[in-house]
Computed example of a mutant assay.
Amino acid sequence: MNLRHLTARFVSLLGEAGIRENEPMAAHTTFKTGGLADLMLLPRTEEGLVSVLRVLREENIPYHVIGRGSNLLVSDEGLRGAVVKLADGMDNIDICGNTVTAQTGAALKVLCLEAIRAGLAGLEFAGGIPGALGGAVCMNAGAYGGEMKDYLTSVRVIGRGLEICEIPASAMDFSYRHSAIMEKEYIVLGATFSLPFGDPRTGMEKMNELNARRREKQPLTYPSAGSTFKRPQGNYAGTLIESCGLKGFSIGGAQVSEKHAGFIINMGNAFSRDIYELILYVKEVVLKETGVVLEPEVKMLGEF
């Protein structure tokens, strides 16, 4: 990869502030681990993003598109090619009546607060979920009985041919931690919700109550990616892991949280390899002891 040549092309599209070379991915994931990305690109508009993607394809450069890194485990060896980060600058939220339209980089907490302040209900469950709208829509993120799909009306995406289109939520094939976005390799640009009207005070109380429950039960003071494993049918990952005596078990600086066994946390000095090996070990033990196959929620990027 001719980095100098590429940098010149991207400067013309994004300006110097939109390009970073040898960027530490530990600064862009909630696990706080990960090696260097050859190139990080920070488009601030849809047009800029499409232009960046077109250049990457023309130059045959491998790339990853990320949001706020709340569900990622990046290899200690870093990432070759480019990382396209959609966050600041692509985080606008617009509310008209009971219709909420937000860009992919909008933080879920901010989205929830803006909706509540506008007298709208339904997103209180998302007020404590880290990360941005794009990843949440892709994974149909949820908590405390709510999911992103509940009030979604449409999703704005970039397709494989770099065309921008608006797709109705009914065509998104939403299910538990799944959407059609994964199979179709869409890049989420934004989403529109139709929310019921509610009382702002009631909404704030509900969000605060759910967040208090999170603080009580989850290890939020340590870097993590939230729940490490998807919920197996008819059971809970944390319950199964705890039943296997793995609560507090550690490899290197990574630990199965003593507070909630469904979380693998960075105790402060973990490498991505520690976390990865601990995920594999937990899966192996749980399968052997219970016969249940745990599937990670965490997306892994790079070589492990």
Rank of each mutant, 00 (worst) to 15 (best):
E205D: 10
E205G: 08
E205F: 04
M207I: 06
N208C: 13
E209G: 10
E209N: 14
L210K: 02
N211I: 08
A212W: 05
A212D: 13
R213H: 14
R214F: 00
R215M: 12
E216R: 09
K217L: 09
K217P: 15
Q218E: 15
Q218V: 01
Q218Y: 02
Q218A: 03
P219A: 03
P219G: 04
P219R: 04
P219K: 01
L220Y: 05
L220R: 08
Y222H: 14
Y222M: 13
Y222P: 13
P223K: 05
G226M: 03
G226V: 00
G226K: 01
G226E: 08
T228Q: 06
F229M: 09
K230A: 10
P232W: 02
Q233G: 08
Q233W: 09
G234C: 11
G234Q: 11
N235H: 13
N235T: 11
N235Q: 09
N235V: 06
N235F: 08
Y236Q: 14
A237C: 07
G238N: 07
G238Y: 03
G238M: 02
E242K: 07
E242C: 01
E242R: 06
S243E: 12
C244V: 03
L246Q: 01
L246N: 02
K247T: 02
K247I: 02
G248L: 06
F249C: 00
S250W: 06
S250D: 12
G252P: 14
G252W: 00
G253P: 14
G253N: 12
G253T: 08
A254R: 00
A254G: 10
V256G: 01
E258F: 01
E258R: 10
H260A: 03
